[in-house]
């Protein structure tokens, strides 16, 4: 029995010199669904919220409150990034429920792109909050001797962010595929339920870690003010 490698992504077609792989197409579909859905839901927002508006406001408000509590800063500049990361990851992780759809987060390139965006956002917000010099000086906290370690941590935590998400989603997809090939119909359903839970938790963790990284970048004194257990495990 030959099992297809979960580490490879298939090229569906090419546009000019650009090969378009399957995760990219899935991501486009998710983008379309999210954009159209949000446009449809936020068409008419009023002072008296309807049921859907109340749900949307609940999601946005909870996200904003999480940002405020974790980063101890006004959530306005960070809300689109963090909220989009969470919503996109949730939808992408759960997209495996649709038959024939492989979640784009099960491909290493997508996770790498997300980790890269968080990395870039960390630098961008850190420089914006502290200035280039101030942000560089924040690596020497609490001592200049720790500067190389902090610099290395900047890359390793992005790498661990990528590998964590990739490993969790990919292993779930891989396990379901293996069980499906061994036992057949209906047996992988409990595994799929577990995969839903894992997907939601991983989306939350990704967003929370992004908050922690950006929050530590914009606060000068303490590089990692919140959630030290996250730092330890990364």
């Amino acid at each position: 029995m030959k099992i297809a490698s979960p580490l490879e992504s298939h090229i569906l077609f090419t546009i000019g010199p650009v090969p378009i792989s399957q995760p990219v197409v899935t991501t486009w579909g998710i983008m379309a669904v999210l954009t159209i859905g949000c446009w449809f839901l936020t068409r008419r927002l009023g002072l008296r919220p309807t049921r859907t508006q109340a749900a949307l406001e609940l999601v946005v408000d909870v996200t904003a409150r999480q940002i405020r509590e974790t980063m101890e800063a006004e959530p306005q500049p960070y809300l689109p990034l963090i909220g989009t990361l969470f919503i996109f990851l949730l939808v992408a992780n759960w997209s495996s429920l649709l038959p024939g759809v492989e979640p784009p987060t099960a491909a290493l390139e997508t996770d790498a792109a997300l980790a890269l965006i968080v990395f870039g956002a960390t630098l961008w917000f850190g420089v914006r909050a502290l200035g280039a010099r101030g942000y560089l000086r924040s690596f020497a906290q609490p001592s200049i001797l720790l500067a190389p370690l902090n610099l290395v941590e900047l890359f390793t935590r992005s790498f661990s962010l990528m590998v964590r998400l990739f490993g969790n989603v990919m292993s779930g997809v891989f396990m379901i595929g293996v069980v499906l090939s061994l036992a057949g119909l209906l047996v992988p359903i409990p595994l799929m339920a577990l995969e839903m839970l894992t997907g939601a938790v991983q989306a939350y963790i990704f967003g929370a870690l992004a908050m922690v990284f950006i929050g530590s970048a914009i606060s000068e004194t303490n590089p990692s003010p919140k959630a030290p257990n996250h730092e330890v495990s990364s």
Binding site: S160, V163, R164, F166, G167, N168, M170, S171, T198, V201, Q202, Y204, I205, A208, N229, H230, S233
Partner: peptide, 17 residues
């Protein structure tokens, strides 16, 4: 607890990778 479990689970995931 769930977040912590996911963090710990990540260690096993690394091994799986």
């Amino acid at each position: 607890l769930f977040v912590g479990l996911a963090m710990i689970e990540t260690m096993a995931i690394y091994c799986l990778v």
